[in-house]
Design a binder for these strands. Structure first.
Lengths: 361, 361
DNA sequence: TTGTAAGCGTTATCAA
DNA sequence: TTGATAACGCTTACAA
């Protein structure tokens, strides 16, 4: 690291104060006389002091880091969430160390252990790879967003209600059959899988024919496109003459469906009714604006940060309590059972139905 | 930080070795006998040791951090680049502290000083806010991607050649007039502004009528859409009966143009020829696949990382040299002129013209 | 209001 | 092959 860094020591020497005073100047300026403050400020200038948070972390344990794991960024939804998370810096001051998830458990585990070794104060997990029971075991605050969350706190869209609204809209469009295109990799724990139950419940209630069309999740847009277009062809071939309501698990998929149909017919025939999920800008901006169930991403992020920040501070006080607690009997320190375990809190954010051109009754 | 961390000290005590040996076990395992290695491995298990990179950083100065500043993530281009950067973790092991840029200089300056205080080893800058001369002054390796780069290393698409190819295509389409929609906020230093010169040069060469249509950059998709649609209306009103070649500075804009026209006419009239820039998936996936000049994002990122990593290592050796150098005359340490200054290296990546449905001759 | 001194958990430099 | 000991740069009791 180039030459030697200018440290408190240097400032102390230069000003004639002690390191402690310099430290106080930064952390509790009121506790230093105005006059001395000025002397120190000047010294800072002259010596061209640059703060070193690494040393600070080592001394007081506050990294101001949050680890964030997204599954990918080619889905607009995740890009948008990430953007919103990054912007919370202004409000909370946390810096984000970001990993773009792999679907290999082992790889993602390595990400996490990196994050832990950098002493991140909390984790935001959007990726689906590691089960929540394991995430809970790491002993630091974790908030999941739109993923399986049994053992950890989370913020989710009310997927069930979203699916219900979407399917009701298709019902009102007098569809003969309802199709739901979704990834097949969800286990029932994943919140988004409530979109499936919501869908089937409404279909049953109204006695509508319905079918789930699963695709396997790839890791590129192209991949998705190919798979979805095959599905659409299948739909077209299977239900000639019927009015088909197609509920897609996300707007990207809905866009692919819409465009494929437009390309084939030159317009959107009345026999197709489409609705997506997420509320991405792309949906509104499509040639025929795509109906969608909009997730309130801003609220998701806001709640997630609130939850995480609160847990971090509860964790901090809890930790010092435990610390004091175990001062006497260090022989128990090893097998401590001190893994972080506040009761997980789950927040639900309602989505907003946006009926648009692809599904007018 | 919960209880007390298990440290080398504890492992040393448990195994009967010294801290030094434990350290060596991690950093140069060969230098510890296999037998002792096993003992230590066991101790790690029993004590449930978790490594602490913060301490390591303080001791050896290697943070393995790269600071990354993107302008936003709602433009697919940036999201894609970010994703590719994050994925280089597998290859280089660098972790990324990410900031989503503000357009306020002061704010972004705060981001950077945060990054510096965390001792990031290098900076990747996609954001346009801070001029390169200032970035160069921070004294750490910086690589710019597609932004003004006079005083720092950079990787850029060959924008001029891209614009030339795009405009030539419009010429081959026998357009009567060529329009170029671009942000007006570029100063000539920004590499993307070469798209304008490329455009006008080709128009001149072929004696084609042409016009630049600037819009002011907002900070949301909606904003962009409104502005661009106004421009399209203006084009339609201004050049009736003429074949209009529209070269957009990015695919998002091209998509807005296309869709607005499709919505208005129900199809893409032959009098409109459209081509975008970037090569985003959305362009290919549009109803009428949009011609575009594809940036090779993978190569951009690969080159950027190569450059940065090389600079980091040159910087490290240079730094130790300077260190040794100034050992004698510490009185000069203060005003050192030691700001990092290898000659900036600029890499150019050729874009690839993808002629598609929106501009068939 | 200021100073002393003991950490924080590693790595680095010598010796042995 | 291993160990003592001094960094690294900041915070934090505890004293003064």
């Amino acid at each position: 690291m180039a030459k030697r860094n200018v440290t408190y020591q240097d400032i102390a020497r230069y000003t004639g104060f002690s390191k402690t005073t310099i430290s106080r100047f930064f952390n509790r300026p009121e506790s230093v006389t105005p006059d001395h403050r000025k002397q120190i400020r000047d010294a800072l200038d002259v010596l061209d002091y640059k703060s070193n948070k690494v040393a600070r972390i080592l001394a007081n344990g506050q990294t101001e880091f949050i680890g964030l794991i997204v599954p990918n960024l080619y889905l607009g939804f995740y890009a948008e969430l990430l953007n919103l998370f990054l912007n919370t810096y202004e409000k909370y001051g946390y810096k984000f160390i970001v990993f773009s998830g792999s679907s290999h458990e082992e790889t993602e585990r390595r990400y996490i252990s990196e994050l832990l070794s950098y002493k991140v104060e909390g984790l935001i997990v959007l990726s689906h790879t590691i089960p929540s029971i394991e995430l809970a075991s790491y002993g630091i605050p974790v908030v999941a967003v739109e993923r399986e969350d049994r053992y950890i706190s989370s913020v989710n869209t009310d997927n069930y209600s979203g699916a219900v609204q979407a399917t009701e809209l298709l019902y009102q469009c007098r569809c003969d059959i309802c199709l739901h295109i979704n990834s097949q990799d969800y286990d029932p724990q994943v919140p988004a899988s409530a979109r499936i139950t919501g869908f089937t419940d409404v279909c049953e209630r109204h006695g509508m024919d319905c079918r789930i069309l699963p695709y396997t999740l790839g890791n590129s847009y192209d991949d998705l496109q190919t798979k979805v277009e095959t599905i659409v062809e299948d739909i077209i071939a299977s239900y000639p003459g019927k009015r088909k309501g197609i509920f897609c698990s996300n707007d990207t998929t809905a866009g692919i469906v819409l465009n494929h149909i437009l390309r084939k017919y030159g317009h959107l025939p009345d026999e197709f009714k489409i609705i997506g999920f997420d509320g991405s800008p792309a949906a509104r901006q499509a040639v025929v604006p795509i109906s969608t169930v909009a997730q309130q991403t801003d609220k998701l992020v806001e709640s997630a940060m609130e939850l995480l920040v609160r847990q971090i501070s509860e964790y901090a006080t809890g930790a010092s309590a435990r610390e004091a607690d175990s001062a006497g009997n260090t022989e128990n320190a090893v097998n401590g059972g001190d893994s972080f375990s506040l009761k997980p809190e789950h927040r639900i954010i309602p989505p907003i139905l946006m009926p648009r051109g692809t599904s007018r009754p």
